[in-house]
């Protein structure tokens, strides 16, 4: 197990280095000079040149790469061109919304998808199964921003249980903050839970037809015991893969929902930074997201090994 973990850690570091190089190279070739963009189209050439100097845009690429990576490692993400404040502060501020939102949405996803998927698999072909399949099909098909608007109409405008948008900040109290994130989390979780429930169902159906389930029944286990003790853990492997992908998506892919609910999250930050050529913010946030994705994949790999002993002993 230790050997496996060390190997996964090694590949994690390698991925990070490669990712940072790719991100840096991409930003280098993006058209548009941040300095002239910040100063507007009427700026004097010498003012632009002075700003370029100040921002360090005149240094050689490799110098800038190492300065950037060195900064990342020590927690110094540089200063935003547009906000004129440290990128790390901006990111932490946004992350305080996006990370809880992603975790909230993913928890809802798992809480709904697992029981629903298991129920559908154990009653294959029944009315329950058919309605689960139909509902999840709908859940995948409905655009989540439309579903979000619908929820705003019902729960905020009509029933007035929730506010229609905005975020009071964590200072306003834990419950108030969680309440503000509830509708967005549900909107994000709907399609994800639908996908995950379907994956859970089909994975469990595959597992239930395995020979070892028959062995378990021949031992005298009831269908339910065989499911709990033998099928579930084996069915988890493809499900874990999907959960890993979903978390990465939820962290940065919430941009539309953030807009619907006026949430100042990471997705909106990247969107604004790109349109304002605030490349240092883009670079840092993208790197951060890559880091998050790689960490999540690492955790998923560890979870695989926890589930499946065959991976642990592989050298």
């Amino acid at each position: 197990m230790l050997r496996y973990t060390v190997k996964r850690l090694g590949s994690l570091l390698a991925s990070l280095v490669v990712a940072s190089l790719v991100i840096f190279a991409c930003i280098e070739v993006v058209p548009g000079d941040p300095a002239s963009f910040m100063l507007g189209i009427n700026a004097q050439p010498d003012t632009v040149a002075a700003l370029r100097e100040e921002l360090g845009l005149n240094r050689a690429p490799h110098e800038r790469y190492f300065a950037w990576v060195g900064g990342l490692v020590t927690g110094d993400f540089g200063t935003s061109y547009t906000y004129r404040s440290p990128v790390s502060e901006i990111v932490v501020e946004r992350l305080a919304i996006s990370l809880p939102l992603a975790i909230y949405a993913l928890s809802l996803t798992i809480l709904v998808a697992f029981p629903v998927g298991i129920l559908a698999a154990t009653r294959r072909g029944s009315l329950t199964d058919i309605s689960v399949m139909a509902t999840t099909q709908l859940g995948v098909a409905i655009p989540n921003f439309w579903f979000a608007l619908l929820m705003v109409l019902i729960f905020a405008v009509k029933l007035r249980w929730f506010s229609a948008g905005g975020f009071p900040g964590w200072d306003a109290g834990f419950l108030a903050a969680v309440k503000a994130l509830t509708l967005p989390a549900i909107a994000l979780a709907l399609p994800q839970a639908s996908i995950l429930a379907r994956v859970m169902r089909s994975s469990l159906l595959d597992t239930l037809s395995e020979d070892y389930i028959r062995t378990a029944r021949a031992k005298g286990l009831t269908g339910r015991q065989a499911l709990r003790r033998h099928a579930l853990r084996n069915a988890l492997i493809p499900v874990l893969t999907i959960i890993g992908l979903q978390f990465s998506f939820l962290l940065a892919g919430a941009i539309i929902i953030e807009n619907v609910f006026f949430l100042p999250g990471l997705g909106r930050l990247v969107f604004q930074a790109i349109s304002q050529r605030d490349l240092i913010v883009v670079e840092s946030v993208v790197m951060l997201l890559v880091f998050a994705v790689i960490i999540v994949n690492f955790l998923v790999d560890l979870a695989y090994a926890w589930v499946d002993p065959r991976l642990r002993s592989r050298t």
Partner: peptide, 9 residues
């Protein structure tokens, strides 16, 4: 080869 649960001792 398939009659035993692969994830249990």
């Amino acid at each position: 080869m398939t009659a035993l649960n692969p994830v249990q001792t």
